[in-house]
C-alpha cells in the first residue's frame, strides 16, 4: 500500500487535497461526518451545509486556492 506522505512520486493537487482533508482539516471533517451519520437514513441536499462550509473553508485555506 502506498502512504501519501512517504511516497517518492511528486505531490499532485489530488494528494494535497487528500492530506488536507484527512489531517489538516480533520476536526472539521469529523464534524461534517458526524452530521451525516446522525441523518444518514434521510439525507437531503445541503442538510449539513453549515458543517461543510467550515470544512470547505479550511480546505480552501490549506490548499491556498479557491474553487
Amino acid at each position: 500500500m502506498n502512504t501519501l506522505k512517504t511516497g517518492t512520486s511528486q505531490v499532485t493537487p489530488l494528494k494535497k487535497l487528500a492530506i488536507h482533508s484527512t489531517s489538516t482539516c480533520s476536526s472539521q471533517a469529523s464534524a461534517y461526518g458526524k452530521c451525516i451519520l446522525a441523518t444518514y437514513t434521510d439525507v437531503r441536499k445541503d442538510i449539513c451545509q453549515e458543517e461543510f462550509t467550515k470544512f470547505g473553508e479550511c480546505l480552501r485555506k490549506a490548499m491556498k486556492r479557491k474553487w
Binding site: 487535497l17 482533508s21 461526518g33 451519520l37 444518514y40 470547505g56
Partner: peptide, 15 residues
C-alpha cells in the same frame, strides 16, 4: 468535484 470527494472521505471515516 473536490467538495464531493472531500465530503465522501469525511463520511467514509465517520460511518
Amino acid at each position: 468535484h473536490r467538495d464531493t470527494l472531500s465530503a465522501a472521505s469525511a463520511i467514509y471515516k465517520e460511518l
